[in-house]
């Protein structure tokens, strides 16, 4: 390779390296301004929960009924060796629904160490939503609403009576 060709190659590599650095930086900046959510559906309505609040997503066939569980608690499931209660998401929202067979997935949420599952119909692929696109909800146990009208759950407000919130 001639000296000129070598200099060209070195320049090209330097340019490429600089571009890669800028891209990586841009991605980092972008990452700081988005929320990653996991969408799911219940009774045809669309919801989501921030992935940072998710402990695990499990198959609802692993839910075991609990004798004497209160209404709205469909049973318990083992999440990484620890049994956690599973709520019927329809009941949380005050909606009528069928049996557990209609809710094949359980999303185990982490409310500051207090783990619990919500049984839901369908779980989608994770999405990144710019923070600036999220709007506060009108009502309900939600943190935000996405531009495509998905209500994003606030786990600390799910299945807990007002007086029990700390």
């Amino acid at each position: 390779m001639s000296a000129r060709a070598a200099a060209e190659a070195a320049r090209a590599e330097a340019i490429l390296r600089e571009r890669a650095r800028e891209l990586a930086q841009a991605r980092e900046e972008e990452r700081a301004e988005v929320r990653v959510i996991l969408p799911f559906e219940v009774l045809g309505d669309r919801y989501a929960v921030e992935v940072t609040r998710i402990h695990q997503v499990l198959d609802a066939r692993r839910v075991h009924p609990l004798l004497g569980a209160p209404r709205g608690v469909v049973g318990a499931i083992v999440a990484r060796t620890r049994p956690v209660p599973v709520l019927d998401f329809r009941h949380v929202l005050g909606l009528e629904g069928g049996g557990l067979s209609d809710l094949p997935r359980v999303i185990v949420l982490d409310d500051e160490g207090d783990l619990f599952g919500v049984a839901v119909e369908r779980v989608g692929r994770r999405l990144e939503i710019p923070l600036s696109d999220l709007r506060p909800p009108e009502s309900g146990p939600f943190a935000w609403v996405t531009p495509d009208r998905r209500a994003v759950l606030d786990p600390s407000r799910l299945g807990v009576a007002e007086r029990d919130r700390s």
Partner: peptide, 12 residues
Amino acid sequence: ALGRRMSSAQHV
């Protein structure tokens, strides 16, 4: 323990 979501079922 099953946490606050089961607090209404005191027999558990």
